[in-house]
């Protein structure tokens, strides 16, 4: 009797799990909710930032594409510029334990200081649950959530998929365009692009 009841529940749970496993996030739909702990030990839920635009930036400090944007101080400049305008900037690391980019919190704090990161926080997602829910494919891969909680941008930081920081000034900066539009209350000009970078090390 017990088994009869449990089996459909189990099947439903598995089916739900399969749906939730990869990319629930869709541009134009509410951004998937989450709660993650940052490198200082504080918990952050997406819902905590209701009323403010939020950037989610998947990162891995050892990936050449991430180094391109941090080495040239491009990522830090974007973080500082938009945080100053009321945007919440959350860097997220989904590297699994033992994989490239996975560091304990104190080592992360040293890396963030060395980078001069101006992000609001760096969230640790070692089981990859939030990365999978958003369909985060690469580092970097950026998402913009507007003040109403709607996902309005999913994709690359810019349109030049190289590892050469000399290519940054001439590239079309999709994330800046999306944030400028969100802050002006205008539609995001390009809402979805193919992210480029190293694969997220789930």
């Amino acid at each position: 009797m017990k088994a009869k009841i449990l089996l459909p529940i189990l099947i439903a749970a598995l089916a739900l799990g399969a749906v939730q496993a990869w990319a629930q996030a869709a541009v134009g739909a509410p951004a998937p909710s989450f709660t993650l702990t940052d490198t200082k030990g504080a918990a952050h839920a997406l819902a905590d930032f209701a009323g403010k635009p939020v950037v989610l930036e998947w990162t891995n400090p050892d990936c050449p594409f991430v180094k391109k944007h941090y080495g040239a101080k491009n990522m830090q400049a974007l973080q500082a510029k938009y945080v100053a305008q009321g945007v919440v900037w959350l860097s997220v690391c989904s590297s699994a334990s033992g994989k490239q980019g996975h560091y304990p919190a104190d080592e992360w704090n040293r890396i963030l200081a060395e980078q001069g990161s101006a992000a609001t926080a760096l969230l640790l997602d070692p089981d990859g649950q939030v990365g999978r829910a958003y369909g985060a494919k690469t580092t970097p891969h950026l998402f913009v959530v507007d003040a109403a909680g709607t996902l309005v941008y999913d994709g690359a930081i810019d349109d030049n998929p190289s590892t050469d920081s000399a290519d940054i000034p001439g590239a079309r900066a999709y994330v800046s365009e999306a944030l400028d539009a969100v802050l002006a209350g205008a539609p995001v000009p390009v809402a979805q692009t193919k992210p480029y970078g190293c694969s997220v090390k789930y």
Partner: peptide, 12 residues
Amino acid sequence: VDWLICDEYCVP
């Protein structure tokens, strides 16, 4: 010639 090679991790 520029390239990106990857295994577990990537090196340009």
